[in-house]
Nucleic acid binder design. Structure first.
Lengths: 344, 344
DNA sequence: ACCCGTATTGCACTCGTGTGCAGTCTAGGC
DNA sequence: GCCTAGACTGCACACGAGTGCAATACGGGT
């Protein structure tokens, strides 16, 4: 009678494996714990028995005793913003490198935000990553009190123990301004994100300063506050900004993200019959995949999504090991990608 | 001296709450367990104490004892496919209604797939949802052995215990064909997804059958196998399909998803200078947000993302309660959204 | 042969929670 | 006043794992 009684009652426990391998439960535990002391011989026997039984460590039980799970909350403001979505893949991948798993929280609705964040705590997450303009910062206070590491992507924090990794938004604004000015634009406009967004403000600041620095006297600059940071929002802003006599119409526009730029671009050429970039040049921000299509061919500022994700996870992991380190900020370089909506 | 010693050592446990409320730990547990027997009086005292201590149930510990977590794995094939991304939000929301949380697994790389799925098991997930063309089905076998509920969105399964919820792909193909034929197209083409994709095959089948059913003798139909289901893939296929004399060029094309259609559309009008829909009509599938922009204005078949997510979660939850029910299939209706790339 | 340092091993306790069981309390009918 | 059903409550055990500590085994130097 062979050992055909494998895979019996569903989940195998470490005790099952121990019994089959003829060792103590401790040995099994140590086999699956990195850095623990097990002889190669027993280790091999345990692994064999585990394989035969289809044993998988119960990470929940492990988390209970270690008083920390291997889950990391990822808080996103809905899935509309393609840029945030692009972060998800790299984030998941980088977390996996540290044996962490992403727990996805969609915080589109600010009303439910508080309860969702509290809910996340029930899983004793090892850390949280907030992306872009997601949550009012006060809500993160409870995390800080409990010393749950927090990292933010493209947000400011101004808290002593919250790491921030952000694209160099200001530099991006500067690049955009230089590009437009060099292309000959003199009536500039900046289409911002909804008010209060950190990214939007920084990009605008860089843009404005570069315009001032240009030293060109005849140059004008107009700042427009967007309400919705998507295609329709771009169309709306364009309707308001382009419905003027040509001499008062902007001839160079910087949109705080690509979706806004798409909307603005389409409105400009289809609704107002303008030629781009001859009558008006447009620069976006993000470089989402659609920006490189022939129909848009949008000149834009590229964010390094991979680097943002890598740094965010890196900082978070460091903080898990050393929870009291002071807040650090990583600024990721951005890059101008010239395409067909600008002259340079 | 007031009770100012609240929020002491980080995480409060049920024992802390019990002590503060002057009840047993069981009472605390029952207060946070739906349907358990607690008197309104003690319940109130427990809640008060819990509030004061900032107590949050430790779902990990709960999961250990209940031998099942409240985590649900969501397996996606990368974040390129916008349609899949659109599912994420509604899925998360519907899961939340059942006190479940989504554990995100990016299975873009088929090589790592097996290990990622195994890893997911370590969290004793309460169920798994596979989206679109993600994983070779054999990999799900281990889940079935362990009786972990599995649901699939827009995939076939042909397994006795795997629920399937899918858009009515076949009907979608039919709608596309009818739309093109009614618009006068006679040389039809179907641009498929990469080979073996369930959705792609079904859509093609519906398309082909509708063409056959039309009874028009002079009609021709060409099937093209795509390799990459994105914008670049669409451009590639167009290059191959449109580089012919006009009388042999298709005049009506159905693309298996919107990204393919975008690429095909742009290639047709920009690379080949064709007028759409006069020279060639194009119909897509999905109705992602970009399809409604003025630049594309793509006629397409809309999938009901909300319904897909709702049904998938619903079936999964039912199966958690009743693990042995036979596999069920939910077919979600689709809808033709006529825009500017077709004549009807 | 003896001693000692090092590498393994197992015992037993621990983590924070759910839940069966038996005991206690309350209200209501007689 | 007594009895009984029903609603609560608490005790004690369970879940599946990590880990300090002491015990053991091993190897080498004298």
């Amino acid at each position: 009678m062979k050992k055909k009684d494998a895979l019996p009652k569903g989940w195998a426990t470490s005790a099952d494996v121990a019994a089959r391998a003829g060792v103590s439960r401790s040995a099994v535990s140590r086999t699956f714990t990195e850095g623990a002391s097990v002889s190669p011989a027993t280790r091999a026997r345990v692994l064999k028995a585990a394989e035969e039984l289809g044993y998988q460590v119960n990470r929940l039980a492990r988390s209970v005793i270690q008083r920390q799970s291997s889950l990391v909350g990822i808080v996103v403001p809905g899935m509309q913003n393609e840029f945030v979505v692009q972060l998800l893949g790299p984030l998941a991948e980088n977390l996996a490198h540290h044996s962490l798993a992403p727990l996805l929280i969609d915080a589109r609705d600010p009303a439910q935000m508080a309860s969702k964040l509290r809910y996340l705590l029930q899983y004793r997450v090892a850390g949280v990553i907030f992306t872009s303009g997601s949550p009012p910062i006060e809500l993160a206070q409870e995390y800080l009190r409990l010393r749950v590491p927090v990292a933010m992507i493209n947000r400011d924090a101004n808290l002593e123990s919250v790491d921030v990794v952000t694209s160099d938004n200001q530099e991006g604004g500067t690049l955009a301004a230089d590009c437009l000015i060099k292309g000959g634009a003199r009536r500039l406009a900046y289409v911002n994100l909804p008010s209060g967004t950190y990214s939007g403000i920084s990009r605008g600041a860089g843009f404005s300063e570069a315009v001032a620095r240009s030293g060109i006297a005849s140059i004008s600059l107009e700042l427009v506050q967007g309400t919705i940071p998507d295609y329709a929002g771009g169309v709306d802003v364009a309707a308001q900004l382009l419905d003027r006599p040509p001499e008062r119409r902007p001839d160079g526009v910087f949109c705080a993200n690509d979706l806004l730029a798409f909307g603005f671009l389409d409105a400009a050429r289809y609704d107002f019959g303008l030629r781009v970039p001859e009558d008006i040049a447009i620069v976006g921000f993000d470089d989402i995949p659609m920006a490189s299509t022939q129909g848009f061919a949008l000149t834009t500022i590229r964010q390094d999504v991979e680097a943002l994700a890598r740094e965010a996870v890196g900082l978070l992991v460091q903080r898990m090991a050393e929870p009291t380190t002071l807040a650090r900020t990583r600024r990721i370089p951005v890059q101008l990608v010239p395409r067909a909506t600008s002259k340079s």
